[in-house]
């Protein structure tokens, strides 16, 4: 790793609820280089958003507790950083795009104000300068700057998400975390927004974590891929490694889930069963109840990561760097 921007080591996050303790993130490890895009994929409840919020220092507390781990961003340990300094990073050097554009903008404030806020907070701009810059950002996401004073309800879903993107890019951050930025949009708009994000990412030379459960999106925009299951990264590697040589049974299952348009029959092969309740994870490998290649050891022992040329997998089928099955 020559030019590491973000490094997460052994991150553990739990939520303490009335029903019990939810182990949302269980020892996540990954690193991201400057300017690169990492795809974080996984089913609903895998802990993707929680991982992202941990980086932002925004895990809701209560009920969330970051138990263990290190998040190093440009040499700084974010988890031990005082809130005051964290505020200088949030929205400035790391910014986040949230899932639902319909609810992530404040309905009673103009979009222009919502974009300029970060500029005023981080770049010491006067209100007027911030306003000009915010209008410029609007233009960047293909919305006329003249609509600066309009309110979120005056925009369509796709435009709102573009406003959110403008907001996230306003201070030219080093890292953008996009949490399912296109899930709530319809397919044609999804493509537009993705294309926009990709071109802006290039223009601003920003690193990005793209959270999604859509492998198609990953294939289009990511350099690296991390597959998350029940709070763990079960497989990680470059785009080619994952798309060309997926190893973990869960990853293979995910690929089988993509409907193949070329194929005549439209059978999808979903992974059997549901992700375990994070309230009580099964003993051993958390995927074993659904795994088609489950072995005896899988029921008893949590697998250790094994890595080969940057391709990491967390499965008993693979040990010592070579395939056993």
């Amino acid at each position: 790793m020559k030019d590491t921007l973000l490094e997460i080591k052994d991150l553990n996050v739990i939520y303490k609820t009335y029903e019990g303790t939810v182990a949302a993130v269980n020892g996540v490890d990954f690193a991201l280089d400057r300017g690169k895009t990492l795809g974080l994929v996984g089913e609903s409840g895998a802990g993707k958003t929680t991982t992202a919020l941990s980086i932002m220092g925004l895990v809701p507390s209560p009920p969330g507790i970051i138990q263990r781990g290190r998040v190093t961003f440009a040499g700084q340990d974010l988890l031990t950083l005082p809130e005051k300094d964290m505020k200088k990073i949030r929205g400035n050097r790391i910014s986040m795009i949230f899932q639902d554009p319909m609810t992530s903008l404040n309905p009673v404030l103009s979009v222009g104000l919502q974009i300029s806020e970060a500029l005023v907070a981080h770049q010491n701009l006067s209100e007027a300068e911030a306003e000009r810059k915010a209008a410029e950002m609007l233009e960047k996401v293909q919305i006329p700057g003249a609509r600066y004073r309009e309110y979120p309800h005056e925009f369509s879903g796709g435009m709102r998400q573009r406003v959110v993107i403008a907001m996230a890019l306003a201070c030219n951050p080093r890292l953008i975390i996009a949490d399912e930025p296109t899930t709530a949009l319809d397919v044609t708009i999804q493509a537009q927004v993705l294309e926009l994000m990709r071109s802006l990412k290039e223009e601003f030379a920003t690193a990005m974590i793209m959270i999604t459960h859509d492998l198609g999106v990953v294939g289009e925009v990511c350099d690296d891929v991390a597959v998350m299951y029940a709070g763990r990264i079960v497989e990680m590697g470059s785009l080619d490694q994952i798309f060309g040589n997926a190893m973990h049974p869960y990853t293979l299952g995910l690929f089988r889930c993509i409907p193949d348009i070329e194929e005549e029959s439209s059978t999808i092969h979903p992974i059997e069963g549901l992700m375990p309740e994070p309230l009580d994870l099964p003993k051993g490998c958390p995927f074993h109840p659904r795994c088609p290649q489950c072995m005896e050891v899988c029921r008893q022992v949590v697998p250790e990561a094994c890595e080969d040329n940057g391709h990491r997998v967390l499965c008993h089928l693979f040990g010592g760097g070579e395939r056993r099955a």
Partner: peptide, 22 residues
Amino acid sequence: RQDYVRTARAKGISDRLVLTRH
């Protein structure tokens, strides 16, 4: 607990501004 409050926090603006403005 609305999303837009979380968005506001994610911008790194002061807690006072989040409370009064958002």
